[in-house]
Design a binder for these strands. Structure first.
Lengths: 337, 337
DNA sequence: CTGTTAGCGCTTTCAA
DNA sequence: TTGAAAGCGCTAACAG
């Protein structure tokens, strides 16, 4: 009942090979022939069976996208951008959401992407060597988002420089006691942003000749609650900081909340700077560092597709692209000291 | 280099048909034979080529999920739940993000899901008749999320009752002038929640013998900015409302912001109630109506899969499932009048 | 420029 | 319980 390539061939009075060529836009098909095929295909409402095509050609026309979460801003943004770009290129998106540690383990054990993708995109997962090997064993091009590694395509930002620009803005306002609400740096193999953003913070303080004070670094675990708890700690300090730098907007939201609950006003009594520029940062009047998520995603995706299409020699010249961030100033850092 | 079914057959000393049966867990395979096949497959690190299997069997082992957005809370939550459930069942998720009106049009014109899915899930899109027809033409089971239609599987909430419960809570606190921040009801074919939630609001007022006042209904367009503008309008009213009911949390965030900017305090000077219970509702101390997104998603997904697996007669007894909502009370509706 | 033909790697009768 | 063989619906040489 649903048309196959033979039906089209019969109707157009050509062979199935010609139908295949005409429909895929290959060269060396006479214009008239192509028209007849196209017409026949339209009349029959024909589309090629992707599975037959994939089996015959060996190309899966599918990209696997691996994310640790889908319901967090950064990753939702990535999925959105990648899906759009792939759709444009006529490829399918196969989404793999790791979700949890066990999910992650199962994923790398079973490698469900085997035999079903032409390329892989991994979003902001710091992979262990064994995991890199598992990906490499797929024998398909891999693109990384938010991390980099020799021999792999990647796009990301310079976390050190970005954090530094944020903190330097604070020191520029005259702040000398600046609290850091950070992520866990214990296992740098798992997630590098905390490490790099903390380095940027420390570097910036050093640049301003501010002595390092370990009491001003506190973990916020990249959650609202964590940011709030860290802020409570800072506010209770005998000599409390005049500014806070949170390594993510989420933690900064927690800071704003705690400040508000304490009867203080962010930007007046204490400055707060976040990182990311999520949509709600504006709602909260939060100053922050904007990172171009969609741009990063499109960047690797495009280059991954090029790598798949063009069997040029190995990796391109510039495998690791670093994109600029931007300071976004709002009310939470309005006043000086 | 990568093993095929023949390699496994050779190694296990059986035919490829037996390998196929053993690996898929079909009955009528001797235990010993199955073991040998499993061992051989493991040793060769074999997985079946999904495309070959799909071509041969006619089953695509893939579900298409159609969403209007991916980077909004509700839909991200849906994608998360559906992906997990499909993965569990061994199916692939093919994500279709409409994104815009043109994206939507292109999607329904081209029907890119043709020949590549066993079933379809549509999330919170109010479809036109032609669009329903396009889906039906796929000749595959379809599940709806957040909308319902005769002859289709669906899961959702009772928007009228949910809104009513929210507003009734406000009237119970003694509020008689309650502003509604709503969505556009002009085109009820596009998006039904605004219509239903407004009906619930009106119904609740009628129940409390409160006269209908058109000046207390204002559009917020389901955005933070819209909610904020509507609130500005309400606050400027000669006799301003003592409570606001927003048809979504996003609009309620806008309300909270505007109230705060006006030097007023939500829950003290004016009560605010939202709808959804997104994660940030708690951060904002916003009272709201919680709708169980993940439950709805799992519910249709499960029933869709059952429908695909069991070729029982047509639609099951209970095609349209309505799930309960829950009032979540926080500081924004703390005081009475 | 077009047709013929041999697969792609499985699943599924049908027989044994 | 197992094997042989016929496709599934395309693509990709190759020949003409």
């Amino acid at each position: 009942m649903v048309a196959s390539i033979e039906d089209v061939a019969r109707r157009a009075g050509v062979s199935i090979a010609t139908v295949s060529r005409a429909l895929r836009g290959l060269p060396d098909v006479a214009a008239g022939t192509r028209d007849r095929v196209l017409t026949a295909a339209t009349e029959l409402n024909y589309v090629a069976s992707p599975f037959a095509a994939r089996l015959a050609s060996g190309r899966t026309a599918t990209i696997g996208l691996v994310v640790p979460f889908v319901n967090r801003w950064f990753f939702a943004e990535v999925i959105d951008s990648v899906e759009a770009e792939l759709r444009r290129a006529g490829l399918d998106l196969l989404l793999y959401n790791l979700g949890s540690e066990e999910g992650r383990k199962r994923f790398f054990d079973e490698m469900p992407m085997r035999k079903r993708v032409d390329g892989v995109l991994v979003a902001s997962l710091v992979l262990e060597d064994a995991e890199f090997e598992a990906l490499t064993a797929l024998n398909r091009p891999v693109g990384l988002l938010g991390i980099q590694r020799d021999g792999f395509l990647s796009a990301g930002i310079d976390d050190v420089a970005a954090a530094q620009s944020a903190v330097t803005h604070l020191t520029g306002l005259g702040h000398r006691r600046i609290g850091l609400i950070g992520g866990d740096t214990d296992d740098p193999m798992r997630f590098t942003p905390p490490l790099h953003r903390r380095d940027g913070y420390r570097q910036s303080l050093a640049d301003a000749d501010i002595d390092f004070d370990p009491a001003l670094e506190r973990l916020g675990y990249f959650t609202v609650e964590g940011g709030q708890a860290a802020t409570r700690y800072f506010l209770d300090l005998p000599e409390r900081p005049t500014a806070l730098f949170a390594e993510s907007d989420e933690m900064a939201y927690g800071a704003l909340r705690e400040i508000h609950r304490s009867g203080l006003q962010a930007g007046v009594d204490i400055a707060v700077m976040g990182f990311d520029d999520q949509p709600y940062a504006e709602l909260m009047d939060l100053s922050t560092v904007r990172q171009p998520v969609s741009v990063q995603a499109l960047d690797v995706t495009t280059r991954l597709l090029a790598l798949i299409a063009g069997p040029d020699d190995e990796l391109p010249r510039e495998p690791a692209v670093v994109l600029p961030t931007e300071l976004v100033l709002r009310a939470s850092t309005e006043g000086g000291v």
